[in-house]
């Protein structure tokens, strides 16, 4: 139990305060002022920061919903992909643009069209430029052939029909006047592309295989067919089977 003397002293102190001129003058607004200060503290320390926090949260939720929707559609698209079919597509695409130089394969196709064009192959050599990882690379095949103009033109036409991607880099022809026989030095760029070490992040959209891509695939398949036919049935071809003789 509290000491009555202490209580009496406190009561006297309170009486002093409430009878003081300052209290008498401002007693009407003291309580509202204290409440106002408390309200302002709540507003500036809690309400306003939490309001901005809520705005940020809504923004984050919106972003997460978009991400969820993107991942959801990506996952369902991936599930629908027939892996075996696409594996076959890739194998076909790798015939046109292999992951390595595949020198024997490319030389075989080029020699095949030299023969089918009727040209005589005198020499063949390879250039070896630097390789960039995951990028489109090429090496050169230098052919020294003998024949006539029509055969060289035929060779250039046929070079577009082989499955392996190639491009004429340079051509130099020398001939003796009055004779149809000429010597040609043809340099072909043969392309390949190493496989990338890293495939894009999970946030990258899934590439779409379009009808144009599938048409391209059919073109490659038809070119592969042409090469196979030429190598299987050389008698039916226009030129010689052995281009060195």
């Amino acid at each position: 139990m509290k000491n009555p003397l202490t209580l009496l002293k406190k009561s006297e102190t309170v009486n002093q305060i409430i009878t003081s001129p300052v209290y008498v003058k401002y007693n009407l607004i003291i309580a509202p002022a204290v409440i106002l200060v408390m309200s302002l503290l709540i507003i500036f320390l809690v309400t306003v920061p939490q309001f901005y926090n809520l705005l940020e949260i809504y923004k984050t939720i919106e972003q997460l919903k978009q991400k969820q929707s993107f991942y959801d559609s990506k996952a369902s698209s991936l599930e629908k992909i027939p892996e075996d079919n696409y594996q076959n597509y890739l194998e076909t695409a790798l015939i046109a643009l292999p992951a390595d130089k595949d020198i024997p394969g490319s030389i075989s196709q080029i020699v095949s069209i030299v023969g089918s064009s009727g040209l005589k192959l005198n020499n063949i050599s390879l250039g070896n430029p630097a390789v960039s990882e995951g990028q489109l690379n090429d090496f050169t095949v230098r052919l020294e052939v003998g024949g006539d103009f029509d055969q060289v033109k035929g060779f250039l036409e046929n070079s577009k029909q082989i499955a392996r991607l190639n491009k004429l880099q340079s051509i130099s022809i020398t001939g003796s006047p009055g004779k149809t026989a000429l010597l040609a030095e043809i340099v072909l760029q043969v392309f390949y592309q190493t496989l990338p070490k890293n495939i894009g992040s999970i946030d990258e959209p899934l590439p779409q295989i379009t009808d144009v891509d599938l048409k391209l695939l059919d073109d490659i398949k038809s070119k592969v067919g042409v090469i196979k036919e030429e190598s299987v049935a050389p008698e039916g071809a226009k030129g010689k089977f052995d281009p060195f003789n």
């Binding site: 696409y86 890739l90 695409a93 590439p207």
Partner: peptide, 10 residues
Amino acid sequence: VILSVLKNRF
């Protein structure tokens, strides 16, 4: 991976 490599080749 197959799809990305394939599309890149195409």
